[in-house]
């Protein structure tokens, strides 16, 4: 699916849960922005810095992460096109975590002040942004459960299911197949496993017929069975929940 305006994906993402009026849509699309193509690992938000812009992911993937004092990384969220990468810091004055590009991709940078003004100008836009932030919190809760309580195969299967469901909601994936945007090391940092453990687990999932792999392309021969195996219920993504007026 192609989008002409870089912020159209944001509108689409906001409208997954909240119906915007025409003037709200136009206000989002009228936001001044700077479009940049960034390489993997480029920082979009740095811990400790004052946020002065609100990046919108237009293409590619990004992730939210925190580092320990020992230098180990925990990836706490993966972002897909259409995601606003820093609604969480919109009204906070210091970033408490990092956001980096996972793959090469395009990002539209909107000035934080412009995004703040937009959120205060329309009740519906404010509601849509609030809902997105609540859903990010919901996803984070699920990730805590995933890393803290599920076994390695279920953990990895769960992340694969989530990515598939989110890409599908934005009309961005192929049917029951997508290109995994992460190395095994990055996937490991998202689920608290070493890369060797990830490698062994992906092999196990393949042997059990739950996934197929061809380089980075992951296929799902039986999506329902994988979801059941992974304990994946997409309720926490709130993909089909319309906000009450």
């Amino acid at each position: 699916m192609k989008f002409g305006h870089p912020l159209e994906l944001l509108v689409r993402s906001l409208e997954l849960q909240t119906t915007l009026a025409n003037e709200d849509r136009e206000a989002v699309l009228a936001l001044p922005y700077t479009l940049r193509t960034l390489d993997p690992l480029s920082y979009l938000v740095r811990e400790g810095e004052k946020p002065d812009k609100c990046p919108i992911l237009v293409s590619g993937f990004a992730y939210r992460q925190k580092m320990t004092a020992e230098g180990t990384r925990q990836i706490v969220a993966i972002h897909t096109p259409g995601d606003a990468l820093d609604f969480q810091n919109l009204f906070l004055n210091i970033a408490d975590h990092n956001v980096q590009m996972l793959t090469r991709g395009e990002v539209a940078f909107v000035k934080r002040k412009d995004m703040q003004d937009l959120s205060l100008s329309s009740r519906k836009i404010a509601e849509a942004m609030f809902v997105k932030t609540l859903i990010e919190a919901s996803i984070l809760r699920e990730w805590v459960v995933n890393v803290g309580r599920r076994k390695a195969p279920e953990r990895i299967a769960h992340v694969l299911c989530e990515l598939g469901a989110r890409l599908k909601s934005m009309g961005l994936d192929g049917e029951y197949r997508y290109e995994l945007p992460m190395t095994q090391e990055e996937l490991g940092d998202a689920v608290g496993l070493t890369p060797v453990h990830v490698s062994r687990t992906l092999k196990l999932l393949s042997e059990e017929g739950l996934i197929t792999r061809e380089k980075r392309s992951i296929g799902f021969p039986d999506w329902e069975r994988l979801c059941e195996y992974a304990d994946f219920v997409d309720r926490y993504l709130h993909l089909d929940v319309r906000v009450s007026p």
Partner: peptide, 9 residues
């Protein structure tokens, strides 16, 4: 580290 992680699991 990887070996220990696999053993733990």
């Amino acid at each position: 580290e990887a070996a220990r992680s696999l053993l733990c699991a």
